[in-house]
Design a protein around this nucleic acid. Structure first.
Lengths: 193, 193
DNA sequence: GTCTATATTCAGATAGAC
DNA sequence: GTCTATCTGAATATAGAC
C-alpha cells in the first residue's frame, strides 16, 4: 500500500458540491478538488472521465438530494396534513424551497440551460417530479395533474430562482409571499372551469 | 483616417448578444467578438473596461429589450383586452414568454445567480417589473399588488426556465399549459381570502 | 481607435513510473 | 490509484507604435 489516500468517488462528488456552494462553480478546478483530499489533480481521472463527467455527477447528486428533502418534509408533516392532499403538497413545496435556499448554487446548476450536457438524465429528472405529481393527482385528479403540476412547479422554481437572484428587491416577507403565491395557485386549481 | 472600422459600442453589445445566443456564452471571447467586426481583440478595451463590463452591458440591453417586448405585446392587444386588466396582463405575460423563447441564453443570463457582478443594476431591474406591477395593481388593487406580482412573475419565469431547460419531458401542449397555469393563478387571485 | 507583440495565468488532459 | 512531469491550448489583459 504505497499511497494512503484511496479516495472514494462518492466523497469526491460530495466535496465538489460543498466547494461549488462555498467557493462558486468557476472556482472548482480539478486542482482545488484534488487538494481538498491531499491528492494530485491527475488522480481524479481515475474516478471521472473528465471534468464534465464530474459536474454531471454533481448535478445528479443534487437532484437526488432534492427529492429526499421533499420526501422528508412531507413525512414530517402532521398526520392531518398528510391526509389532506393540499396541505401535504404545500409541505413538500416548502421542503423544496428550503433545499434551494440551502444549496443555491448547485440547485441552480441543475436547471441552468447555459450548460448543456450537464443535465441530469431523463430518469433522474423523472424521479424529481414524481413525488410532486403523485400528490397533485390527489388534489386535482390524475387527468389534470400534468398541467397542474407544471404550473405549480414553475411557480415554486421561479420564485426560488428570483429570490436567489436577488430580484425581489423591495423586501417584505418573502416567506409569506411564497406561502401566499402557492396558496393562490392552489385556490385557482379548485375553481371550476 | 488610417483605420476604417470605427466600431460603435452599441453595435458591439448587439453583436455580443447575437453571438451568445447562437454560439453559447462560453464561446463568446473577446477574440471572437472582435473578429466579427474585423478588428483585433485588444481594440475592445477602448469600448469596455474588461470582459465583465461587456457582459454587464449585454445583460442591461437584454433587460431593456424584454421590457420593450412586453409593452409591445400589450399594445398589440385588442381595445377590449386592453381595457380588461386581466386580459391585458395575460397579453403582457405572453409577450414575456415569447421574448424568452426568442432569446433563451441571454434571458437566462439576466437571472443567473451563478455569475454575480453581472446583474443589471437596481434601476434596470425596477424598470423590468414596473409595467407588470401597474397592470397587476389594476387587477387586485395596489395594496395586494406586490405579492400578487411576485407570484405571477415567479410562475412565468419558472415556467419559461423549466421549458428552456428541457424539464417538461412528457411533451403535451406547452402553450396551452402556460395559458392554463397563468389563468389558474389569476383565478386564485380573484378568490376572496 | 486601431494595430502588433507579448505577458500572464491557468486549466484540462496525457504519459509513464511506482 | 497515485505520483511527477509535461503538453496543449486558450483567454484576458497590457504596452507601445501608428
Amino acid at each position: 500500500m504505497p499511497y494512503p489516500s484511496q479516495v472514494q468517488r462518492a466523497d469526491l462528488i460530495d466535496k465538489a458540491r460543498e466547494l461549488i456552494e462555498s467557493e462558486g462553480l468557476d472556482r472548482l478546478t480539478l486542482q482545488s478538488l484534488a487538494a481538498a483530499f491531499g491528492i494530485a489533480a491527475p488522480s481524479l481521472y481515475h474516478h471521472f472521465k473528465n471534468k464534465t463527467a464530474l459536474l454531471a455527477a454533481v448535478n445528479a447528486a443534487t437532484a437526488s438530494a432534492l427529492v429526499e428533502a421533499m420526501l422528508a418534509a412531507a413525512s414530517q408533516a402532521s398526520a392531518e396534513d398528510q391526509a389532506d392532499p393540499t396541505s401535504a403538497l404545500i409541505h413538500m413545496l416548502h421542503g423544496y424551497r428550503m433545499f434551494a435556499h440551502a444549496h443555491p448554487v448547485t440547485y441552480s446548476m441543475v436547471f441552468a440551460n447555459t450548460m448543456s450536457a450537464l443535465k441530469p438524465d431523463p430518469k433522474t429528472a423523472e424521479a424529481l417530479v414524481l413525488p410532486l405529481q403523485e400528490i397533485m393527482a390527489r388534489v386535482v385528479g390524475a387527468a389534470k395533474s400534468l398541467p397542474a403540476l407544471r404550473g405549480g412547479w414553475a411557480l415554486v422554481h421561479g420564485f426560488v430562482m428570483l429570490e436567489l437572484a436577488g430580484q425581489f428587491q423591495r423586501g417584505g416577507d418573502l416567506d409569506n409571499a411564497f406561502e401566499t403565491a402557492v396558496r393562490t395557485y392552489m385556490d385557482g386549481l379548485r375553481q371550476p372551469e
